[in-house]
Design a binder for these strands. Structure first.
Length: 264
DNA sequence: TGGGGCAGAGATATCTTGCG
DNA sequence: CGCAAGATATCTCTGCCCCA
C-alpha cells in the first residue's frame, strides 16, 4: 500500500549531542560516535556493513551506511575537535528510502515520530528537513502556476497572511516554458522549490521515466527547512501526541507558502 | 589557496500593521 | 502620513573540513 497521503519527508539531517558518547561502553566494532547514532536508528542492524570516509561540512570522520558509491547513503559524521558541532546523521533522499524499505523488510517500520521524540529527549535536534509532495495529474504545470503568479492571478501568502513579493521568486527555464520556481532565498532557513518532475524524470536515466511518460502533469513541491526552523519544527513534531505527523508537515508548508487565487 | 558548506549565535534589512 | 513595533528574511562571523 502507498501511504495515505502524498506528503513525505524527503531528506533530513539529525544532530545528536556529542556527549552522548560518554553514556556508552567501549565497542570493538564501531566508534562510539556511530553507536550513538545506532542507538537511535539501528543502522548497523539494518545494513550489516558500512564504509568509512572523510566527513563533509567541517566533520573529519564519516561512517556511511547504504549502497555506498551509488547514492542511497546515510552518513554519520563528526569532528572530535569540534564536539560542539555534535554528531550529524545525514539521510539523502534515496538513503532514507532505502532505510525505510529495509526496516519494513525486517518487520519494524520506521516511526519517525518516535525517533524524533527520542532525539529531543537526548537534547538533540533536526537541522534539516525537506518536505515534499507530488501533484500528479492535477491538471496544471509549473509553467501555468508561474504565469498565474506573473499575471497576479495567484499569490503566495506567508505566515502573516501577507503576499510574498515577486522579488523573492526565482524562475528557471527557457523562454517559452518555466520549469522551476524558487520562493525565498536558498540560503534562508526556509525555501520552497516547485519544479516539473515530468520533465526531470523523462530522461534516459530517470528512475521513474515510465511514470513521467504516462502522466499528463507531475509537479513536485519541496519545502526545505534548515537551522533554527528545522530545529523548531522537530521540537514541535516531538510534542505531537499522534504518530501520523504528515498532515502536520503539510500544514507547516501551507502555513508558510499558501497559494491563493485573487478573489474578485 | 579559494570555494563551498555546516553549526550556532547574533546582527541587519525589509515589510506590514496599528496608532496617533 | 509618519513612525514604531513585530515578525521575518537574509546575511555576517568564527571555526572547521574537504576538494580541486
Amino acid at each position: 500500500m502507498e501511504t495515505m497521503n502524498n506528503i513525505k519527508i524527503d531528506q533530513l539531517r539529525i544532530n545528536i549531542p556529542y556527549d552522548e558518547i560518554y553514556q556508552l561502553e567501549d565497542s570493538q566494532d564501531l566508534p562510539k560516535e556511530v553507536l550513538v547514532a545506532d542507538n537511535l536508528l539501528h543502522l548497523a542492524w539494518l545494513f550489516k556493513s558500512n564504509t568509512v570516509s572523510h566527513g563533509h561540512n567541517g566533520n573529519t570522520s564519516s561512517y556511511n551506511f547504504g549502497s555506498g558509491e551509488q547514492g542511497g547513503n546515510i552518513s554519520v559524521m563528526w569532528n572530535e575537535s569540534r564536539k560542539d558541532m555534535g554528531i550529524l546523521v545525514d539521510f539523502t533522499a534515496t538513503g532514507k528510502a532505502l532505510y525505510e524499505s529495509l526496516a519494513e523488510l525486517h518487520g519494524i517500520p520506521v516511526n519517525w515520530k518516535k525517533i524524533i521524540e527520542e532525539l529531543y529527549e537526548k537534547m538533540g535536534h533536526i537541522s534539516r528537513l525537506d518536505i515534499a509532495t507530488d501533484l500528479i495529474n492535477y491538471g496544471f504545470s509549473v509553467n501555468e502556476i508561474i504565469q498565474r503568479l506573473k499575471n497576479e492571478e495567484s499569490f503566495f501568502l506567508n505566515t502573516q497572511g501577507n503576499k510574498i513579493s515577486s522579488n523573492r521568486f526565482k524562475i528557471i527555464g527557457n523562454y517559452e516554458e518555466a520549469q522551476t520556481l524558487y520562493v525565498g532565498s536558498r540560503k534562508s532557513d526556509a525555501f520552497l522549490r516547485i519544479y516539473d518532475k515530468k520533465v526531470e524524470q523523462d530522461r534516459a536515466d530517470g528512475l521513474y521515466r515510465n511514470l513521467a511518460r504516462s502522466c499528463n502533469d507531475w509537479v513536485r513541491v519541496e519545502a526545505e527547512f534548515k537551522h533554527r526552523l528545522a530545529k523548531d519544527l522537530g521540537r514541535y513534531i516531538a510534542t505531537l501526541t499522534i504518530d501520523n505527523i504528515y498532515p502536520y508537515l503539510l500544514g507547516c508548508v501551507l502555513e508558510r507558502w499558501s497559494l491563493v487565487d485573487k478573489e474578485e
